[in-house]
């Protein structure tokens, strides 16, 4: 299961002005695994993901994708290796669902060569995976927040990249679709892709991630299997919340003491 490193940060520091958002973080994500990055608000987890996606340039250190420095890859080539589900983005109300999912094929198309049968097959498969095939003709302005998030995820899948970066992918989704989306993400990892997801929900992270990276104030606090990283001590140190560990069918979940008392 331990295949090659797909995306990694090596001793990366990133600053907004004088403020270091990320300080000396090293983190590697491998093909075939699902890595969850968790931590409290403002800990730098989304910044780490954006650095991996090549959207930000580190002040120090290096970001590599499949062994190559991200800084040296043109965006079009990078997009064939790595797909990002951004936390937010524009949603042109008049665009159709099929068109938005089709945008996932952008890096594979050219000015004179668009929507080839191959492209369309990938788009159809992605829509089927996200259970949105019946929405294909609808306009984005007519969709609910949850439907829209699934459409965006389908666009990312259609990109057909070996690395998937998901920034808080379960936002806006109801319970059923949260787990449905995570099921799809895990299935992508099982199929050999590298999936890195920024998550808020510790339970979801425990249930779905092969490994968890716990961040706090711009640093990597712990990294490893969910059971090893998510200890009551680590959670209290990072989140300032006392929790109780409860074993649910082999998976340990953490519930806040204050809620249980």
């Amino acid at each position: 299961m331990n295949r090659g490193v797909a995306a990694e940060l090596e001793d990366v520091t990133f600053r907004y002005g004088a403020h270091a958002v990320l300080a000396g973080v090293s983190l590697a994500a491998r093909a075939g695994e699902m890595l969850a990055i968790i931590g409290p608000n403002g800990c730098g987890k989304s910044t780490a993901l954006r650095l991996m996606a090549g959207l930000l340039r580190p002040a120090r250190g290096e970001v590599r994708v499949e062994g190559e420095p991200v800084a040296r890859l043109p965006r079009r080539q990078l997009a064939r290796r790595l797909a990002l589900l951004a936390q937010s983005g524009g949603t042109p109300a008049g665009m159709s669902v099929a068109d938005l999912v089709g945008m996932g094929r952008y890096a594979h198309e050219s000015w004179l060569r668009r929507q080839t049968p191959d492209d369309r097959a990938k788009v159809d498969a992605a829509m089927a995976a996200m259970e949105i095939t019946r929405l294909a003709g609808r306009r984005l302005g007519e969709l609910s927040g949850g439907q829209l998030q699934r459409v965006r995820m389908a666009m990312v899948l259609a990109q057909d990249a070996p690395i998937l970066l998901l920034d808080e992918p379960t936002n806006h989704l109801d319970l059923r679709h949260q787990y449905a989306l995570l099921d799809v993400a895990r299935a992508q990892a099982r199929a050999g892709r590298c999936v890195v997801a920024v998550l808020h929900d510790l339970t979801q992270a425990s249930l779905y991630a092969d490994r968890i990276a716990l961040m706090h104030e711009g640093r990597l606090v712990a990294e490893g299997a969910p059971g090893a990283v998510l200890t009551t001590a680590a959670i209290e140190q990072v989140y300032g919340v006392r929790t109780r560990a409860i074993d649910v069918g082999g998976t340990v979940v953490h519930l806040p003491e204050s809620a249980l008392s």
């Binding site: 954006r50 996606a53 090549g54 959207l55 965006r75 079009r76 990078l78 997009a79 064939r80 790595l82 797909a83 990002l84 951004a86 936390q87 937010s88 983005g89 524009g90 949603t91 042109p92 665009m95 938005l100 945008m103 996932g104 952008y106 890096a107 990109q159 970066l165």
Partner: peptide
Amino acid sequence: LLGSAQAASLG
């Protein structure tokens, strides 16, 4: 139309 971050990651 999808915002800078999404546009860049699409290629």
